[in-house]
Design a protein around this nucleic acid. Structure first.
Lengths: 209, 209
DNA sequence: GTCTATAGGTGGATAGAC
DNA sequence: GTCTATCCACCTATAGAC
């Protein structure tokens, strides 16, 4: 009961800020001091909620994965066709990028060699999830004649994830969301059975990525 | 004359180590101490050659760009067809990845927000160069009927660069070069006029990326 | 839960001897 | 060119008062 009293909660706020900081500056590019400054508290206070940076990020990853799985479920429930699902999936990326951020795991993938092991595990888990979900969508789409591609759905899914992550990173480098949108459109067109998919560009409601 | 006396030169050695460190750990993940340890000298000695970290990396970028441009020129001179050029281009990535490294600029692109401005400039310059070179190859290949793709060569080139960078990052995360090779093959197949390109996998002689 | 205070370490960088 | 010595800022983390 008393749990619902606090508005948002300090721990959640800390995770929110850490998330954004990592997405913009990377794991090795942010510190407790950055979060403390925005929250107007001392660094020591943060250690009460998260004893170590590694633990903070690990917890962040768990929350992130949960939210992301929910987003994919939501897409599955909302969109019927494979193309619609893929468009919604790409829109997840667009929403984050429009906010000046990278995919959390895309960022951490770059710094992979310097990450705590517990965090590494969650990063690969995230990509595994993406690949598996996309592979299912692609397979069903092809079976329904809605999509066309060669080889295994899993391989096509891997390339799609990698391409979107790379396009996101490049687009952010150029501070140009349109670059990413163009890439996303080309990728979906290449998967569409009949020519180009409708270039409808829907932005995600709440950024989940 | 005395210049040729020293074997390799300390400055070059420093750049070599810094390059590898950035490609594995990132700009914010390495320090003068890392280089000093390997070279068995003090940090102060490094500052004699490169007064600041920003200057060190800027100089590194200049050397890198020069070497990369030479590699593209070499490809232009060696390979006749567009597909051959693209395969050789992909092989540049493969060679670096097989050595456990990321593309230097792909890595720096992730950390873009934390980079010294002078370094940022060189990172975007690198991608501009890649896009321009690829766009030319793609355009000529399509005109010759060797390649098939829709839209502007420039847009196709951008997607290709982004996809390769993303695939490289994911493959390194999984420590699985084959993942990248599969992605590269799929990308080239998608550009090839008639079905799949020969899955000939040539590794770069000297890693230039 | 948040504070002060502080520990112990590492970061990039400089001065001046050799 | 390389060293010792040192600076100062910042980092993660802890102890203990409030």
């Amino acid at each position: 009961m008393a749990v619902a009293a606090r508005g948002a909660g300090s721990a959640q706020r800390i995770l929110d800020l850490a998330e954004r900081l990592i997405q913009v500056r990377g794991y090795n590019g942010f510190s407790y001091a950055d979060i403390a400054q925005v929250m107007q508290v001392t660094k020591a206070s943060l250690h009460y909620h998260f004893p170590s940076k590694a633990e903070l990020v690990r917890r962040l990853m768990l929350r992130y994965a949960q939210r992301f799985r929910a987003a994919l479920d939501e897409i599955d429930g909302r969109s019927a066709g494979a193309i619609g699902k893929l468009q919604a999936y790409v829109a997840l990326y667009t929403g984050v990028l429009a906010d000046g951020r990278m995919c959390l795991c895309g960022m951490l993938a770059a710094e992979f060699a310097t990450l705590p092991v517990a965090v590494r595990t969650e990063v690969t888990r995230f990509f595994d999830l993406n690949e598996a979900w996309l592979a299912t969508v692609l397979e069903q789409g092809r079976r329904a004649g809605e999509l066309a591609f060669t080889g295994q759905p899993r391989e096509a899914a891997r390339l799609l994830v990698a391409s979107l992550e790379g396009a996101m990173m490049l687009a952010r480098t150029y501070d140009d969301v349109a670059r990413f949108q163009e890439a996303g459109h080309r990728l979906l067109s290449g998967l569409s059975g009949k020519g180009a998919a409708a270039p409808r560009r829907r932005s995600a409601s709440g950024a989940v990525m």
